Simulated assay, not measured.
Amino acid sequence: MMSILFPSAVPQPSNLRLNLGCGYRPMEGYVNVDLYGTPDLVLDLETFPWPWSDNTVAEVQLIQVLEHLGRDPKVYLKIWQELYRICKPRGRLIIEVPHHRHDNFYDDPTHVRAVTPLGVRMFSQRLNREWNQRGYACSSLGLNLGVDFELRDISYQPSSVWFQRHPEPEVNWQLLLRESQVYNNLIQSLRMVVEVMKPT
């Protein structure tokens, strides 16, 4: 385990893969980073700037992490700016979070915010411009912060409550999404793949 005291001393390969907020779940082939657990690098992700150079990171894993970060919205938005800064063009973020309507989200007192697909889409400059033209009230976070991300894929993990209600082996995904707008605890978590949009 190494504590980062001097960011300029951290090696800067050009194709880094980071597992941020790794806790006790390090991943092979990644630089595992956390303030706690068993990381390769000890780092408070709410302290800036992060110790990686611009355009050096190809992939960032954020597994059950973002919901713990940025109680202050300014800190949360700065995290997205740092992700954009360090990532290469066409780099990707793998984000897994508890579903905001599942008890797992509410039970943990260290969960400070819901992370939703629409919240991630607000960092897309393409969508910001489209929404502004249509007069939508969504925050233009991509344009305001100088970042640009595109949400490319979303997958959902149904909960045990869903399978109690619908024990059939094949999940009806459209029904799951419709019912989850009405009932809590049907989706346990979601996984999003986000692409970093930068000029090459």
Rank of each mutant, 00 (worst) to 15 (best):
L83I: 13
P73W: 05
M27Q: 14
V31M: 09
K88V: 14
Q188I: 00
D153I: 00
G91A: 15
S189D: 12
F6P: 00
G142A: 08
R25H: 13
N185D: 15
L127K: 07
P169H: 05
I94T: 08
P73N: 07
E195T: 09
P13Q: 09
P167I: 12
L145S: 04
L43E: 07
D148Q: 08
V120A: 04
N15Q: 13
P199H: 10
L5V: 08
S53G: 07
I94L: 15
G146Y: 10
V65L: 15
N185T: 03
R191I: 02
V65T: 15
F123D: 03
D108L: 04
R90V: 00
P13G: 11
I187G: 06
P199M: 04
I95A: 07
E179V: 05
D148R: 06
N185Q: 11
A114S: 12
V171R: 01
F149T: 10
V194G: 12
D54E: 15
L145P: 10
N55I: 06
L66M: 15
C138P: 00
N32C: 04
P49S: 09
Q188C: 05
A58Q: 13
P39T: 12
M1P: 12
D148V: 06
L176Y: 03
F6S: 12
W80F: 15
D40E: 11
L66P: 01
S189A: 14
P158Y: 02
N144W: 00
S139H: 09
D40R: 05
G135V: 03
C87D: 04
N19W: 02
E150I: 01
C87Q: 13
I63E: 03
M197H: 03
V196E: 02
L143Q: 12
R121Y: 01
K74Q: 14
L186E: 06
L41E: 09
D34L: 07
V115D: 10
E179C: 08
D54M: 06
V147T: 13
I95Q: 08
S159E: 05
D54A: 14
L151G: 05
R134L: 13
L186K: 05
L186W: 05
N128S: 06
Q81H: 01
K88S: 06
P7N: 07
C138M: 09
Y183W: 09
T200I: 05
L151E: 12
S53R: 15
V161W: 02
M2G: 02
G21K: 07
F163R: 15
H166N: 14
Q133F: 07
L93W: 01
D107L: 11
V65D: 01
Y156W: 14
E96Y: 00
A9R: 10
L190K: 02
Y24I: 11
R126N: 09
Q61S: 13
E82W: 04
Q125H: 02
L118A: 06
R152L: 14
V161G: 00
H102N: 14
Y156N: 03
L62D: 05
L5R: 11
V196Q: 04
Y36Q: 14
L143D: 15
L43H: 08
V31C: 10
L20K: 02
L141S: 04
L175K: 15
L145E: 09
R121L: 12
L62K: 06
I154P: 04
A114P: 03
L41I: 04
L69V: 14
C138T: 11
L186M: 09
C87S: 15
H100P: 01
L18Q: 11
Y84N: 06
L18E: 06
L151N: 11
D108H: 08
V112N: 10
